[in-house]
């Protein structure tokens, strides 16, 4: 676009200097953001000596030495931790999406006494940090005999994620045309069948929601530490924390464990970053 009135600007050095400056600042900060991670990943494929003597060289040729990974796999049940993390994360997301969709459907589809109160009741949870209730949750899990099981984590994360899911999905549920649902009812569909007719239409919202709740669950340290610290139910985040705390001197193993803990998150992030960033900022546009 050319604006005749701003034409004199073209002669000013700011025309090319400003973009250059913008790239220099953004580039330097980007380097600061990713260099520490690259440094750790790169050095995880080296032996102890190379880590200290040549930390800035890539692990190619004789520098390459996966000894740290051998130690991690020998010393910890890392695949078991990984499995626990997957079960906890997928189980929680599954419950959040299913129960959240059911509740959002119930609250938006029907009119009944107490609907306004129940909607408000479900939303209160958005504002309260559940961590502060940890003592009571711990007592509850002990009473239910669920301490040190991955179920304790799945239940807490699901309860924590439900208000957000109900809030988001209700917005989308309202947009589904009622003609569609009424047509199904005329054909004799039960209310449950109508629900399952609506769910596939929610796919984009469900996907965004899943990505949005996934990483905080995967990364959480607090509840695994308090509710399920035992070996059998240990998640990858907690397992990494404990391994890293114990192996302070074996740097190859430390860096290998860090890299193994980073990898799943980074892969998920790079696949879903677009949806995730969209989901994080949805609804804030209008402030």
């Amino acid at each position: 676009m050319t604006q005749p009135k701003t034409a004199p600007n073209a002669l000013r050095p700011s025309r090319w200097l400003t973009p250059l400056l913008v790239h220099v600042i953004l580039g330097s900060y980007t380097l600061l953001a990713i260099a520490p991670v690259i440094l750790v990943v790169m050095n995880s494929f080296k032996g102890s000596q190379a880590i200290f003597q040549k930390p800035y060289l890539p692990p190619i040729g004789e520098l390459f030495d996966p000894v740290g990974y051998a130690t991690v796999f020998k010393q910890t049940a890392i695949l078991h931790y990984l499995g626990n993390s997957l079960l906890v994360t997928l189980g929680s997301i599954g419950l959040i999406l299913l129960l959240g969709a059911m509740t959002a459907f119930g609250l938006t589809e029907y009119r009944f006494r107490g609907r306004g109160f129940l909607s408000l009741y479900a939303l209160i949870g958005l504002m309260i940090p559940i961590r502060l209730a940890t003592v009571s949750i711990l007592k509850l899990m002990v009473a239910l005999n669920l301490q040190d099981t991955i179920w304790s984590l799945i239940l807490v994360y699901s309860a924590q994620g439900l208000p957000m899911a109900i809030f988001v999905l209700s917005q989308y549920m309202r947009q589904v045309p009622s003609d569609l649902k009424d047509a199904a009812r005329l054909d004799g569909a039960s209310e449950y069948q109508v629900f399952w007719l609506v769910v596939p239409l929610m796919r984009p919202a469900l996907a965004t929601l899943a990505i949005f709740v996934m990483l905080p669950i995967w990364n959480d340290l607090w509840f695994p530490l308090v509710l399920a610290p035992g070996e059998a139910s240990r998640t990858l985040t907690l397992g990494a924390q404990q391994f890293l705390g114990q192996f302070q001197t074996d740097w190859s193993a430390l860096l290998a464990m860090l890299t193994l803990a980073i990898a799943p998150v980074l892969v998920l992030y790079l696949i879903f970053s677009r949806q995730l960033i969209r989901g994080l900022t949805a609804g804030t546009v209008k402030g």
Binding site: G100, F105, Y110, L118, I124, S136, I137, E191
Partner: peptide
């Protein structure tokens, strides 16, 4: 209309037991 209860009860129960009750109990 029992189906309304079926849609709402699981989430509201879970949320009440694991989140609201512990907050009040705190």
């Amino acid at each position: 209309r029992w189906h309304i209860a079926v849609f709402l009860a699981p989430a509201l129960l879970l949320y009440s037991i694991v989140m609201v009750f512990p907050l009040l109990d705190t």
